[in-house]
Every structure is written in structure tokens, then in C-alpha cells.
Design a protein around this nucleic acid. Structure first.
Length: 862
RNA sequence: GGGCAUUUAGUUCAAUGGUAGAACGCUUGUUUAACAAGCAAGAGGCCAGUGGUUCGAUUCCACUAGUGCCCACCA
């Protein structure tokens, strides 16, 4: 016997271990079509948050749904070493223990990192379990595993040999805290108020000066030229002459370049090639010197003269102070500008000239564009993200992949000692004593970008790779399109000649109830574990699937979780009732549709429509629609109506069969979304398989749908509602018995009268074949429908009856007006769908009939 | 500057080329033999604005306005 209320702790207990023990997640059947997903590997930096819960739960629903639909599914789990993120966290962690990571040394540090990985991997696995994910653990991978390292090296060598990887001295984004280069996507821009300083740069040997504007005065030591627009009337005459750098009197050539915006600032640009990307480009074009003035940690180096050793911010102050004192400062303008910050350390990025490894992206991106413009394109759900991807691919820059970190894939490049020679190879050279390996590691996204094929055993062309690659679907958030999705497609096309996945389901972010992004710094994050402890995993899963629209953000609201729990509790209790009614000796029999009563047919019809709607939308990953259909079926058709009518004759064997049939289908339909409750109910009801995981998903059966039964039953639902309404508005007890006379020439469906008496406590129901005659008492209510009239003996005040009738009349008049407008429109009759026209005409005549009856009734009442 | 999305009930969100739905909240009633985290009834929306396509537009298209996001970035 089931509990009155779901005890989700009890329900969830042991299920996951049972599924694991039965190997349901890791058994693969060759004779079924394959369906594969690789899990976006979570970072080993902490616990999983709601965002992870969202995309893993969506994936799990899909995997379970596909498996129940006859696919051989596989879902590959794994985790990401998350180079920079993990290293940052580990450094902080070591610091709390009083350990300086640099002093610890690379080897010891990496040992600590692997320990860290072990700890967090266990936490993550326990959360996967909590979420109920049907992952094939036999295939679990870690992005820094040895075999994956070999893949990374192979890819690196491939790209290098194709001349798609190069080493070069470029301006990169330098993180002074972590002392590493970053790629462009790891930089965040924040709008900030700042100063725009105007300095005087005097022309050599004159008292004429050019006003030069800068937001970063400290870079003045690195100036190697002054640039003006060659079309700028104010300054073009000075091109070719020299200015003096006010800080050190160094001669700076004045050059002309159209890059300079005449209207911005003063129209004069100081060129600092080693500390600005655009200035660097200018310096290449114009063969200018590049002076590096800063150390790796953001302090000034020997080129900064009297500022040597100062932090960049202090240097800025000192430079401004110096120039002001010596009368070189023209003015300071307050401006709002975008300042680049490191995504990881949240310190201001320093553009810095540095020798790094890069991937040439233009050529690779072209293949992505070609793919998405072909018939074999990856299908995005929703489709608009395909456009976003293309936009990105068209504007992509070279990808800086080297990081000055320890935790990651060390770059497979070996330099010959005491020379400039190096070799690029998958395995270390044999005479290693003559070589040393590049100290740097690769951007963590480099190995992530290989994930779909390396996790499926590439480059081994084995069974797994052959069968499951390309993967069927990728499920992830839109925030990862550029970091990850794009790069995966690039790498996959290059190395496997195939796309990494055939479809891509994109979801949004989970926001808090005030629609703010959830973030640690704001402290508004919600821990999925808390939600699970409070409402159970299935309530969370229901929330995540029923409230998310592909591609759009979700606002997290506890009341929605509660609503989900209530829905599941509803199913639970209906099951409790059904199981109680059918009894322990119940034996399932095949239902013969033709022999059923109208109401039985109705509920089965509605079930079929629900199955149809759910199947269509599940296939498009539109779970919110699919679950909405199930929700209204469960509440409106099953619980409120059928289950109630079934109480009329509980002992009827056919009713029991239908009740069970419906319940069973509801449990199967909800299973992919809420597997724990579904399994619990399955185990508690008559069943033939070991687990619900072995059952098939319900299939739509057109032969179980009857059109007429629907409209008949809808009528009685309407009648019930009206009578209840009258009772409520007239303050009559709901269970107050009423006498009802029915006037109709139509044949009432079987069960009609029983329904009426059950739902509205009708007594002495009499049916008259003749047309309705004036009731002998004006206080009786008469309800008018097109083919049926009801005289309901409720002894209500005459005025109230009249009021009610007038309200009805107004409603029907409105509706008639609409129909007349439509039917008087010749063009509508000509051009509209013929079925639609017939429908409209039928409705119209029914409405007219009803109106006539209501009018007559109003006239009767004096 | 370029691009994308979004605007629907008090709130959070759906759906839809043919009289707009849910949840929560609100009002009223109800302990009617599964469920009071229940049941029943009800109030509440000219679907942002203006045009266009259409027999018909909340839905498709264009423009405008508000909101949000992404990319680029000016020294």
C-alpha cells in the first residue's frame, strides 16, 4: 500500500543502485539503432550547480526516452581538468594551508592537483547519482587521462604539420595575477568610469605641441611613434616630423595612418606597440620599434626608468604627477569606457607582447561555414543558434592556446638545448637529454574541443567510435557556443572529417526569482542538492523540463518546484486509488475498444491524443509542451472526470481494466522525466518486467480514438460545471440534492444519467422525449444547450434566474455576432478551409437554437 | 557600431493563422468514500505601438519603442 503523500526519500532509495546493478545504462544492443550523447564534462572545480542539473537532466530525459523507444542508447560521462579554473582554486586552497605553490614546484603541485581531482570527482559522481543520470560509467573519461593526452598530442601535431598551428610573438591578453596568456573569449569587458588624460607632446625644437589622449599614461615609456590621420587638416603637415616624449625626451616619429579616428579624443594617437593590439598592428605596418615596459606581474621593468619596480597603477599616478608638475598635462576628461578583465582572476587584463602558440582559425572556420550551409548541417534546437554560430565563425580570430600554467596538457614541442631548433611530436624524442619540453600547457578548451571523438576512442576506429560517432545530440547552454561548440565542430571536421554531433539542443541559463543571473559573488545561487532534499529529485526534474523552453532562460521559483511536486503527488494518489480498486488479484486483459462505454472510450481517446502530442513534442525536445499535455490529461480528463465517474460502479471489471490501462500509460509517459516515482509505481502495480526501464514508451493508436464520444462527454462536462456554478453562486451546498428533468430528442449516451447524479447529486432524473414545455414553477432553473434542455429544481429566487439567463444570452449573442460576421463574409466562404466553413455553420445553427430557447425562457419569467 | 532574442492575467511563464492557457496569488464555498501540498466555483488579458500580407493576425512580415544578451571596440 502506497503512502498518502509521496515520501521522495523512500521512493528514491536504492533505485539508482538497482539500475546500475542491472547494467541498464551500460548494456548495448547491436540490433537497435544507436543513439549517443556525450556529457559536457563538468569542471572538477566544485559541486554541480543548477545549470549542470538542467543540461544533464534534459540529456537524461532524452536518453531514457530514446531507450524506451527502441534505441540502443549510450551516454558517455566524463570530467574536465579545467586547467586555469582548477589551478586557481588549488592555489587558493594551498594558500589557506600556508603553502606557496610556486615554491612547491611543478611536480609536487601536480600531485596535489591529482588529489584534488579525486576529491571532486567523487563529489560530482555522487551528484550524478542524485540526479538519476543514466550514464554509462564503463566509458567514463577524464580530459587529462593518459590516452586523451595522446589524442591531444596527435591533434596538435596534425595541426602543426598542416601549418595550422604556429608560434609567434603577438599581443595577447595577459593575466598578471595568474601570469598566463588568455584567449580572447576568456576576457570579460566591464563598463567603468575612468580618466582620459591629455598630454602635450612638443614638436622637436619648437614650442608647438600635439595634444595626445590616453587612458593608460603608464604606457608612455613604451611609446615609439605618434600617429595622426593623413586626412586630418590639423596635423597632416606634421607627418614625417618628430615629437618629444614628455616623459623622457625621446624622439618619436609622427606618422600618418587612416586607422586613427579624427573625431575621437584629440585625433592624435600615441603608439605603444608592445602594450596594445592595434598599436602592434601599426608598428608592423610602419616598421616601428616595440618596447616592453612591464614585467609579468604587472610591475614596471627597467624601461620605465624612474618607475621601475612600481606596480602599474602606482606608475600611472606617478607619471601623471610628473607630467603635471612639468606642465605637460593639458586636461583630464572623465569618460566611461570598457575595461578588459580576466574571467578567472578578475584583474585588469594587460595587453602584452609575448611569444605564444596559436591556432589559425580562418581556414578551419570556413569548414564550419560550409557545413552549416550544406544539407548535412548540424540541426540546432532552436534553429537561431545556427545563425549565431555562423556569425561567430565569420568573425573568428586566431586562438591563443598556450597557457603559462602547470595543470593541463603540456605542449608537445621539444626544444633542442642551446639552439633555436625545436621538434613537434606525439611522443618525447629518444635523446631527451638533448631536448627540453615546452613549459606551457594548452588552453583547457583545446582538449575539451576534442571531447566528442576522443571520449569515443578516437583515433582507434573501434566498435564504439564506429557505432556512436558522430554523436546524435549535444545538450548544452548557449553560453558555451563560442568556447566549446564552435571549437568542437572545428576540430571534429578537421580530424575525423565528420561533425561531432548531428543535433544540438541549446538551453538557457537559470536565473533567480528576480531574473538575475545566479552567481557565487551575488550569493543568489541555488544548490540543487537543497532542492532535492526538500522536494525530491523528480520534482526538480519535472521543474527543469516542464518550465524550460529551448534556448530561453528559466527563472527559478520555489513555487514552481512545489507545483511540480503537487502534480507528481496527484499521479501518486490516483495510482493509490486505482491500485486499491483493482485489488491484488487483478489480471490485466486486453481492452476491446468497441465494447467500451462512451466514457471509457472518451478517456482512452484523450489518452491517445496526449500520447500523440507528447511524442511529437518529445521528438523536438519541446518538453514543456509535452508535459503540459500530460498535466491537463491527468488533472482534467483522468482525475477530475474519469476517476470520479469510475466510482459509480467500482466493481465493474471493464472499469478496472480501463483504470489500470490509463494509469499504466501515465506512468510510462512520465517515466523519462521522473524515473524514480515511475519506477516506484511500476514496482507497486501489476507488471511483467523487472524494471520500468525495460518497458516501451506508449505509442499513439489511431484506432483508439473516437470523435463522437468526445463531443458528447464535453457536453456533460459543461452541464456539470453549470450546475455547480449555480449552486455556488446561489450559496447552495454542493451536495444538495436536485431533481432534474431532461428534454431531448437525442439519444443520451450510456452513463449520462449516472454521471449527472454522481457529480451534482441529481435525484429523480427524468428524461422526456418531447420538446421542453414551460416549467410549472418560475423558480426552477432551465439550462439550454443546442440539443438538450435541463430543468433543474433548485428553488432559486426569480430575479437570480433571470439574471443568469440574461448573462447567458449576452454570451451567446456575442458568439453569434462573431459567427455571423464570419459567415456573411463571402471571401471567407470562398477562400477559407472548407472543413472550417462547415464547422462554423454547424456551430452557428446550434447557437441560434440555444438562443431561441433562452429567449423563450426569459419571456416566460414575468 | 554589428547581431540575436524578448514584450501575453497581479507575478512567473506557455501555446496558437479562426472567440487566449497554466502555475502561484486573489475571492467564495467545501473535510463529498485517492490526494486539504486536496476538491469545486469565480474574478482577472482590446496578447507593447504602427503599418503590411491574409477572407481572417496575439500568431507571419516590416518599422518604432522598451527590456535583455552576444560580438567588436577609440587611443
Amino acid at each position: 500500500m502506497l503512502e498518502k503523500k509521496i515520501d521522495f526519500v523512500k521512493v528514491s532509495e536504492g533505485k539508482y543502485d538497482f539500475w546500475l546493478k542491472e547494467k541498464f545504462f551500460s548494456t548495448h544492443v547491436k540490433n537497435k539503432p544507436p543513439f549517443s550523447i556525450v556529457l559536457p564534462p563538468p569542471n572538477i572545480t566544485g559541486k554541480l550547480h543548477l545549470g549542470h542539473a538542467l543540461d544533464t537532466v534534459l540529456s537524461d530525459i532524452i536518453i531514457r526516452y530514446k531507450q524506451a523507444n527502441g534505441f540502443d542508447t549510450v551516454w558517455i560521462p566524463g570530467m574536465d581538468h579545467a586547467g586555469i579554473a582548477t589551478q586557481t582554486k588549488l592555489i587558493d586552497f594551498l594558500k589557506t594551508k600556508g603553502i606557496n605553490w610556486r615554491l612547491l614546484g611543478r611536480k609536487k603541485f601536480l600531485e596535489e592537483a591529482w588529489e584534488w581531482k579525486k576529491t571532486y570527482a567523487d563529489i560530482i559522481r555522487s551528484q550524478w547519482k542524485l540526479l538519476g543520470l543514466s550514464l554509462d560509467y564503463s566509458q567514463e573519461r577524464f580530459t587529462l587521462d593518459e590516452d586523451l593526452n595522446r589524442c591531444v598530442n596527435k591533434v596538435f601535431v596534425n595541426l602543426y604539420n598542416k601549418n595550422l598551428i604556429y608560434r609567434g610573438e603577438r599581443i595577447i591578453n595577459w593575466d598578471i595575477t595568474l601570469k598566463t596568456a588568455l584567449s580572447d573569449v576568456e576576457v570579460l569587458y566591464k563598463k567603468e568610469k575612468g580618466n582620459l588624460y591629455y598630454f602635450k607632446y612638443f614638436l622637436d625644437g619648437t614650442k608647438i605641441f600635439l595634444p595626445v589622449a590616453t587612458t593608460r599614461p603608464e604606457t608612455i615609456f613604451g611609446d615609439t611613434a605618434i600617429v595622426v590621420n593623413p586626412n586630418d587638416k590639423r596635423y597632416k603637415k606634421y607627418i614625417g616630423q618628430y615629437c618629444l616624449n614628455p616623459i623622457n625626451n625621446k624622439k618619436l616619429i609622427i606618422i600618418g595612418d587612416k586607422y586613427v579616428d579624427i573625431n575621437f579624443g584629440s585625433g592624435v594617437l600615441k603608439c605603444t606597440p608592445a602594450h596594445d593590439k592595434n598599436d602592434f598592428e601599426l608598428s608592423i605596418k610602419n616598421k616601428l620599434d616595440k618596447i616592453n615596459i612591464m614585467n609579468e606581474d604587472g610591475t614596471m621593468n627597467e624601461n620605465a626608468a624612474f618607475c621601475e619596480g612600481l606596480d602599474r597603477n602606482l606608475c600611472r599616478k606617478k607619471v601623471v604627477h610628473f607630467l603635471k608638475k612639468n606642465n605637460f598635462l593639458l586636461k583630464i576628461e572623465k569618460i566611461t569606457h570598457q575595461v578588459a578583465y580576466s574571467e578567472r582572476s578578475d584583474t585588469v587584463i594587460e595587453p602584452r607582447l609575448s611569444k605564444q602558440w596559436f591556432v589559425k582559425m580562418k581556414e578551419l572556420a570556413k569548414k564550419v561555414i560550409d557545413l552549416q550551409n550544406s544539407d548535412n548541417k548540424i540541426i540546432f534546437f532552436p534553429n537561431m543558434f545556427s545563425k549565431k554560430l555562423l556569425e561567430w565563425a565569420k568573425n573568428v580570430n586566431d586562438w591563443c592556446i598556450s597557457r603559462q600554467l602547470w595543470w593541463g596538457h603540456q605542449i608537445p614541442v621539444y626544444y633542442k638545448r642551446n639552439t633555436n631548433d625545436f621538434i613537434v611530436c606525439e611522443l618525447p624524442p629518444k635523446d631527451l637529454e638533448n631536448y627540453y619540453q615546452d613549459e606551457d600547457v594548452l588552453d583547457t578548451w583545446f582538449s575539451s574541443s576534442l571531447w566528442p571523438f576522443t571520449s569515443l576512442h578516437w583515433p582507434k576506429n573501434d566498435y564504439y567510435y564506429d557505432r556512436y560517432f558522430p554523436t546524435s545530440l549535444l545538450v548544452t547552454g548557449y553560453d558555451l557556443i563560442f568556447f566549446w561548440i564552435f571549437r568542437m565542430i572545428v576540430q571534429s571536421l578537421e580530424h575525423t572529417k565528420k561533425p561531432p554531433f548531428l543535433g544540438c539542443l541549446i538551453h538557457g541559463l537559470i536565473r533567480d526569482q528576480n531574473n538575475r543571473k545566479m552567481s557565487k559573488s551575488m550569493g543568489n545561487g541555488v544548490d540543487p542538492v537543497d532542492v532535492i532534499n526538500k522536494y525530491g529529485i523528480d520534482s526538480l526534474r519535472y521543474f527543469l523540463s516542464a518550465n524550460s523552453t529551448p534556448g530561453l532562460d528559466i527563472s527559478f521559483q520555489e513555487q514552481k518546484i512545489i507545483a511540480g511536486f503537487n502534480f507528481l503527488n496527484k499521479i501518486w494518489n490516483s495510482a493509490r486509488y486505482v491500485l486499491n480498486i483493482i485489488g491484488s488479484d487483478f489480471c490485466e486483459q486486453e481492452i476491446i475498444f468497441e465494447n467500451l462505454s462512451t466514457i471509457d472510450k472518451y478517456v482512452i481517446s484523450m489518452l491517445q491524443k496526449t500520447i500523440q502530442k507528447m511524442t511529437v513534442n518529445n521528438d523536438k525536445y519541446r518538453f514543456h509542451i509535452s508535459l503540459h499535455a500530460l498535466y491537463s490529461f491527468v488533472y482534467d480528463d483522468f482525475c477530475s472526470f474519469y476517476l470520479e465517474t469510475s466510482k459509480i460502479n467500482r466493481d465493474n471489471e471493464t472499469t478496472k481494466q480501463v483504470l489500470f490501462f490509463i494509469l499504466k500509460n501515465i506512468v510510462f509517459l512520465i517515466y523519462p522525466f521522473c524515473p524514480f516515482i515511475a519506477e516506484e509505481l511500476y514496482q507497486n502495480m501489476p507488471h511483467s518486467k523487472k524494471s520500468i526501464m525495460q518497458e516501451d514508451y506508449p505509442k499513439y493508436q489511431a484506432d483508439l480514438v473516437l470523435k463522437k464520444s468526445v463531443s458528447d462527454v464535453l457536453l456533460i462536462k459543461e452541464i456539470i460545471k453549470d450546475i455547480r456554478n449555480i449552486k455556488t453562486t446561489n450559496k447552495i451546498q454542493p451536495n444538495h440534492p436536485v431533481n432534474i428533468d431532461i428534454y431531448t430528442t437525442e439519444k443520451l449516451f450510456d452513463g449520462f444519467l449516472e454521471c449527472l447524479s454522481h457529480f451534482v447529486f441529481a435525484k429523480n432524473v427524468q428524461v422526456f422525449k418531447d420538446k421542453y414545455q414551460r416549467a410549472d414553477n418560475d423558480k426552477k432553473i432551465v439550462l439550454q444547450y443546442a440539443k438538450i434542455s435541463l430543468s433543474v429544481d433548485l428553488q432559486i429566487d426569480k430575479d437570480n434566474v433571470k439574471k443568469m439567463l440574461i448573462k447567458n444570452l449576452e454570451e451567446i449573442n456575442k458568439s453569434i455576432q462573431r459567427s455571423e460576421k464570419l459567415l456573411n463574409n463571402k471571401k471567407f466562404l470562398e477562400k477559407a478551409d472548407k472543413q472550417k466553413v462547415i464547422e462554423e455553420k454547424t456551430k452557428y445553427s446550434e447557437k441560434i437554437l440555444t438562443r431561441t430557447k433562452i429567449l423563450a425562457r426569459i419571456n416566460e419569467i414575468k
